[in-house]
Amino acid sequence: MNDVSHDAGQRLAVAKTYKFFVGGAFIRPESGRTYPVTTAIDSADAHHVNAPRASRKDLREAVRVAAGAWKGWAERTATNRGQILYRIAEMLEARREELHQQLVRSGSSAGDAKVEIEASIDRCVYYAGFTDKYQSLLASANPTGGPHFVFTLPESMGVVGVVAPEEAPLLGLLSMALPALVGGNVVVVITSECRPLVGLVLGELLATSDVPAGVVNILSGPSAELATELAKHREVAAIHVVADVPQTLIDVERLGAGSIKRVKGEGHVFVERLYTPRGQGLSAIERWIEPKTIWHPVAI
């Protein structure tokens, strides 16, 4: 009898170990710690799934890697950044079944999962088309008078920390990370704590989407704790936190003051807006850019 022939019913599925996505590589937590993730239904993958639990050191490493990737990402042409974000949309579309499975496992209905994935793909397309346009909407030529050309140009900030909401774990995460990326920032993302798998799988898609290593880094773990660590980290220029617990948002704002961090904290309203026109837009990009004013003389 042939070794490889088998009855599908008797075959044992291969379970996957989920890992962080940092610096373009898939890594295990430094502490070796994981935490159990509740799954709604039994799946071919595994009955019991563990997610990697990020420590302060994991976060520090992710920030270091992201900071190193910033210059290269910001200096790419706007068109090229757009092409890469569009590539993400293509990869999501091609692997939507896997994403669907993950969302359903973590508690979405099949219908909701479909809607969330389609909105996620379209959100990528929306922001892909923004990389070479926000400048013409946010920049200005300033009529200062006198013999100078004076213009104001948007520049990126650097490392933006993103703490994704517990609900809408894919669309929420993307709606926070994409506008930061559009403006030339790099991100360190903390996935939904209870529903981290779809975010970790997103890392696997990003790895095949021409996104340069280190531009997007994805961790999972105790969100509130990691949010405060991000807020304290001096290399992190800005932080966007969606959390249901008001105290988390207060902590993040207070700790962010240590390095005059740009902080945006939002509660459940963020999730409510995700499927409305307010779930995307120019303001989300403008939040993570710094206008720079340049004066240049006009003379022979």
């Binding site: 068109t79 757009g82 092409q83 929306y126 088309g129 923004f130 990389t131 070479d132 346009k133």
Partner: peptide
């Protein structure tokens, strides 16, 4: 084509 694709919804 890419550039204008991005304007269509903005």
């Amino acid at each position: 084509l890419f550039y204008h694709a991005g304007w269509a919804d903005k």
